[in-house]
Design a protein around this nucleic acid. Structure first.
Lengths: 120, 120
DNA sequence: CCGTATCCGCTGAGATACTG
DNA sequence: CAGTATCTCAGCGGATACGG
């Protein structure tokens, strides 16, 4: 099935802002990337422990999309029991300033989020 | 109607990343903010011209959410014909580094978005 | 000009059960 | 351990029409 994402054409200045956000704007993608920046390499189960309220299905889904977008890599080790490791690609690593900016803002202005809750 | 946004409680490190993204993770919010950083003050119709593929309903919707989150202000001038101006609040202005980071990344790595289209 | 109201399709996302 | 497969449903978001 083709990876088509809702939208049309026509680009104007500011388009790249939107385009960038589409890349990791998925519900859990920023969080996945954040943990990868923290830990370097993570296995599926380690993600699950770090993000308890993400369902298995969603986690798989988001990981696959990030992989398809070339931001993370997925390495399967043919062992028993199976092992799969995820890490940032070179392209993925370039997102560091963006994630950092998000984190920095959130840390400083978390109080502005009163009344809103976020799962992690 | 209450402004409740899907999620639960429990915060861990990295939570603020997610929380921040929820603030302007709406489909057009980053773009709205971007244009406000560019132009300072914008009227409803000016937004529409800058973002032709956003429906009127969605634009209103996203503007209201940004307003409810305290990121932008909405000023109604009691004239005929009516005039409404939107601009960033002080809190909204603090998002500048984040939007800038998004824009910068998008400009540099837009080629990685091949096959994906984004409307503006 | 700046919106609201209504109808409705699509898909994002949870719960649960099963596989190599 | 690291996933698929199905079922299900709410709500995001588009189209269209109307109101102050």
């Amino acid at each position: 099935m083709p990876r088509i994402r809702h939208t049309t054409l026509t680009c104007s200045p500011g388009c790249t802002v939107e385009a960038t956000l589409e890349l990791f704007g998925g519900k859990w993608k920023a969080l996945i990337l954040y943990h990868l920046f923290e830990d370097g390499v993570l296995r599926f189960g380690e993600f699950r422990r770090r993000m308890p309220n993400v369902t298995q299905r969603m986690l798989t889904n988001q990981l696959r999309e990030l992989e398809a977008d070339g931001l993370i890599s997925r390495t399967v080790f043919p062992e028993v029991p199976p092992r799969v490791e995820y890490e940032l690609t070179d392209l993925g690593k370039t997102l560091k300033p963006v994630i950092q900016a998000l984190k920095k803002w959130g840390d400083r202005y978390a109080h502005a989020l009163q009344g809103r809750e976020t799962g992690t």
